[in-house]
Amino acid sequence: MLPADDVLVAGLRSGDEATFARLLDSWSASMLRLARSFVSTDASAEEVVQDTWLAVIRGVAGFQGASSLRTWVYRILVNTAKKRGVKEKRTVPWTSLEPDGGPTVDPDRFRGPGDDYPGHWREVPEPWVLGDEFRHVVARALDQLPERQRVVVTLRDVDGHSSEEVCAMLEISAANQRVLLHRGRAAVRAHVEKYLGGAA
């Protein structure tokens, strides 16, 4: 557990290296994954994270405490990553968030309107027998998600941020966040199902 924000901020302002090293080691992994969603290479993502920490070093004297320290750092990261993404012509249109539309499960899986039980499973999902490859399948599925879904699923499920934190970092509504999260999770689940079905 990290100390409270006021302790961390005081440490950063006074130049306490142990405090800085601790934050660097606690947050950089999740920051790298988030950055990677906006830029096209791992090397770019690492530079974005580095530039973010440099901005934190310079800017922490002016940190107002209006949000948590972590949210403030992540906001800097997202802005840095977006600028970089624009340069790399890889933009995530968060502001023009049109609904992605369409069902998250293949409609053919459900009985049609002429059936006695329309909208119910034709055949219930097969049980999963999960082996060592499960983690790789999930990791690959995450990589393949559309960008906005990947960002939200990464922040929520991989890094364990709360819904409120993610909405604040990305400046999106709770409803939009939930739609992206649901679509992303459902796509990962479907990817696993397809993999297991194909491997059987």
Binding site: L24, S28, A29, S30, L32, R33, E46, V49, Q50, V105, H120, W121, V124, P125, P127, W128, L130, F134, R135, V138, A139, L142, V153, D157, V158, G160, R185, A186, V188, R189, V192, E193
Partner: peptide
Amino acid sequence: GCERYLDQFRTTISELGELPPETL
């Protein structure tokens, strides 16, 4: 069928939480 779907959804979420961290 939906009970299984929900279980698989939860399994997926918890596995996402186990992905290895990247480092600087």
